[in-house]
Structures are given as C-alpha cells and as structure tokens.
Nucleic acid binder design. Structure first.
Lengths: 146, 146
DNA sequence: CATCATGGTTGTTATATACAACAGTTGTAT
DNA sequence: ATACAACTGTTGTATATAACAACCATGATG
C-alpha cells in the first residue's frame, strides 16, 4: 500500500493543508486573527448575504452545531451579525457586519495574492484539465460507493 | 473576490475534505476507529518503520508536540510502540505493532478501494497533467512569497 | 388544540494544534 | 573535567474544530 507522489490524491491533501496553513500565516502576518475555517465561512457569507444558519451549514459541509459555534466566534470578533427572520422567527440570517466586510476586503487581497502565486506559470490548458479532473474525482467520490 | 468553481484551489480543498471524511466514514463502517490524521501517520510509519519522533513530525508537517500526542493516542490504541535508541537515548523510534500492522492492512484495503473509485474513468493523460499541476502549485507555494 | 416537524442553541466529549516551559541527554570548548 | 550549549522528546496550558444527543422555541398539520 502506498499513496505515492504520483497519485493526485496525495497532492490534493498536501496542497490543501499547505494552502490553508500559508493563508493563515499571511493573515496573521498582516495582523488578522482569522482561521482557515473562518475564512471559508466568510467567503460564503460574502457571496450570500443573509444566509440562514442551516443553509450556511450545508454550504460549508459542516454540522449545524459546528456552524453555531463558528458564527459565535465570528460574532464575538464583530465580523458577522445574526438577525431573526420576522416571518419565521426560528430562522436566523447571518450577515457580514460593515466591519466584517472591511476586514473581508483586506483578507481577500491577501488570498488573491496567494492564489496568483500558486497558479503562476501554469498554462490555461493544464489548469483547465486539472480543474476538470478534480471535479471529476469529487463526483466519483459522491457517487455510489461501490 | 471569489474562489469560484473554475479554480483548482477550490476543488483541492473541497476534495481534500470530502476524501478525508469519506475515508473515516468507511473505516468506521468497517469497525475501525481511526481518524484521517491517524491514518496519515500510520501511512508514514508503514513506509518508514522505526522513524524517530522528530522525523515523523517533519514528514507529517506537524509540530513535535502534536506528534507526541498523536503517538500517545496510537500507542493507547495498541497500534504503535515507542523504543528508546540505545546509542542516543534522547531519540525515540516509533514502529507499528504487529496488531497495528494487521489493522493497517485492513485499512489500506479500504483506502485503496476508495482511491480506485475516485480515479475511475480518468484518463492516464489527464491524471498525469493533474498530478503535475498540483505538484507545481505546491512548489509555487513554497517558493518566495513575493 | 394536539401533535409533529423544523431551526437553532447548549451540554458534553474528543480530537487536533501549537506555544512555552521543562527534563534528560549529548556535544563542545575551555 | 566541567561548564555550557544544543538537541529530543514530553508536559502544561490554551484554543479551535467537530459532532452526537438533548433541548427550546416556533411553525405546520391534522
């Protein structure tokens, strides 16, 4: 048995960890105390303002309790706000605060810059094939486990 | 700002999480209580029996304290053993126990099967390009952060 | 209305992670 | 040889991540 270096699965994991770690380090170096998980949630909220907690859980592929705690932390940091839905008062809408949006912009610049570095020197053709292959692998995993 | 679905970085993270989760679920379904992190360490130890703690830390890209605790857990589960080096008594060598090796074989079959599923239907050419691209991205990240 | 379903939070537990401090061991330089 | 420095690994502590079970408040259905 081996997951050797000529299998994409190895590099997927390796790169995923390396990127997450590098991102957090650069955030930290710029004075931002934001984890990779928090960043992922902020990205989602940016794209979908006012998302409900359960919808956020789905998009982040996390348990709803995990999401509750994550939103707690982000709210404590002043980056997001919760608002009860007026129609259905069970529902909570989560939104970036103005302060959170401003911080998001700063973080996004850092992330964007890292992405540019990571992809530098890769031909559009290879990039397309790599993306498509990863997508295919993801689909394969979701499909029947047989 | 977006890390949209046409960027490989998005799929790298998505797939990494999905694979790790799927793997743990299949381990669990087969009666094995082994986390993804533990599996990564077992893989390394399988390939490098008697590895020292610090060398293991390096290979796993983890802090040495993290490694100590990880080895603690694996030892508690009876999967690995520690042995002091006779020459340099600071050094600890870590090895799969017979029981750990047996369990490893069972886990490897499950992992291998999942890998086969994930890669099914992907042409060798695409696979090679994807692997090479991911490797390139990893190198880019390690290079100068400029 | 009574019951059931839904959305979210809390209690609890376990893992993962790493910084700081430490203990024991080895190497080195006077 | 002895003192000091460097190294290996562990422990103390703190925090984040994650999810199961149980729960509360609210809404939907008969």
């Amino acid at each position: 048995m081996m997951i050797p270096e000529n299998l994409p699965a190895y590099w997927v994991n390796h790169l995923s960890f390396a990127m997450r770690r590098a991102l957090v380090q650069r955030f930290s170096a710029a004075g931002h105390d934001v984890s990779a998980e928090e960043w992922a949630v902020l990205l989602i909220l940016q794209a979908h303002p006012g998302l409900t907690a359960s919808a956020l859980s789905d998009k982040a592929f996390r348990d709803k309790t995990t999401t509750t705690r994550m939103v707690d932390r982000l709210a404590r940091k002043g980056m997001v706000t919760r608002a009860r839905d007026t129609d259905d008062r069970r529902v909570v809408h989560i939104t970036l605060s103005p302060q959170g949006q401003a911080q998001f912009d700063a973080l996004a610049a850092i992330a964007q810059q890292m992405l540019a570095q990571v992809m530098q020197g890769i031909s559009p053709a290879d990039l397309a094939i790599a993306t498509q292959t990863l997508r295919r692998m993801t689909d394969n995993l979701k499909g029947d486990p047989a």
